[in-house]
Nucleic acid binder design. Structure first.
Lengths: 199, 199
DNA sequence: CGAGTGATTGACTTAGATCAATGACCGTGG
DNA sequence: CCACGGTCATTGATCTAAGTCAATCACTCG
């Protein structure tokens, strides 16, 4: 389920961990690419900085996320990576990883499959952001993430995290869920949401 | 630059085009996967339908977009694909494509590279949606899409399309650009936007 | 020339952001 | 063992930016 479980033993063996202080730079634009990073702890932000010093965040990676996949296929980085908090990252060096991908077609296929899945879920999340109403956005999340029974949804983390994922403030999400529950559209119990039968 | 220029000649040779009327189904969930689709004309929506018949759009694919990459690695589809308008799609059959990917590591690498790039741009667009202010969202777009001079941005299509990409109504975008121009932050000329030097 | 679309601006409304406060819970260190 | 700091969950009040509705002008295309 994790973003890196497709990696083979030889690649894992070559991994190196690195600890970063808050504010420390992991790499910057123009630098030679090192490989694939996995965030083990903390938060790393990938940013592009324009002439006037404004930062545009390209990705905010938290524990479990992977970063700079595209850098595997590029000689240099095109953005800066900076630790937003104290953080630990794991580097799978490009040389080993690319060699392994070349040597082992199954690994490459697993890599491609993982990327394809990511593309799919990212597109879905982006599509969800096109929905303006908070309630409909929650409904979209619920129908997309329902288990096989089509009714039950397990919340992966806190509601605050879900709110961030949905692009809502946590207050807005709390209110929306409260209203949906009051209207009998959903039922809540600890980490679960059940959608009531709509007839 | 197109989403399919990584495809090799043998794969292209096996492609088949198909025309769809508006409302017609391309495939539905549970059906055996056919391969990789490219939208040549019109719009196709990928939807998951819940018990009560509500549709949740997973992707809205327009001409030039590719769809169902992940289905290459799955035996059955997990959503429905329906033509929203009259449309033409090109199918690169799974059997040929997978065989070619297996046979030709360079092709597989090109495929992975394309997917990795897509992941990157999708993440960037998603990150942009986390910005609430219309003006800051436009600024994010401008800094991310600036040419090498860091000032000039070529608009790929119409402003309406850009507005949709940014997750704004076209009115909101027009107003925001007008205000930014009035404030001297940008200059506009036909299909170009220039960011004024900020000191 | 009329239909269709993009660009633009105005007026009005509202949903969600923002600010603020509270209670529950949890781990921890004295 | 308990007080304390921290975070999550929740709700209230207020405000505003962006959505919605609407009208106009410029263009293009058949």
């Amino acid at each position: 389920m994790s973003a890196t479980d497709w990696l083979s033993a030889p690649v894992r063996a070559g991994a190196r961990d690195r600890k970063l202080e808050a504010g420390q730079t992991l790499f910057h634009a123009g630098q030679r690419t090192g490989g694939l990073y996995e965030v083990l702890d903390g938060k790393i932000r990938l940013v592009r900085v324009d002439r006037s010093g404004r930062e545009a965040i390209l990705q905010l990676a938290s524990a479990g996320d992977t970063l700079a996949e595209a850098s595997l296929f590029s000689p240099t980085y095109h953005c800066d990576a900076i630790a937003t908090t104290e953080a630990v990252v794991r580097l799978y060096p490009k040389t080993i990883l690319l060699a392994e991908l070349k040597r082992d077609p199954n690994l490459l296929e697993a890599f491609a499959a993982m990327l394809a899945r990511q593309v799919m879920t990212l597109r879905t999340r982006l599509e969800r952001r096109n929905i303006h109403s908070a309630r409909d956005r929650v409904r979209h999340y619920l129908t997309v993430n329902a288990k096989s029974d089509g009714r039950t949804i397990a919340l992966p983390g806190t509601l605050k995290e879900l709110a961030a994922d949905l692009g809502l403030t946590h207050e807005a999400l709390y209110r929306t869920l409260a209203r949906m529950e009051a209207d009998g559209e959903i039922e809540r119990s600890d980490g679960l949401i059940k959608v009531r039968k709509t007839m």
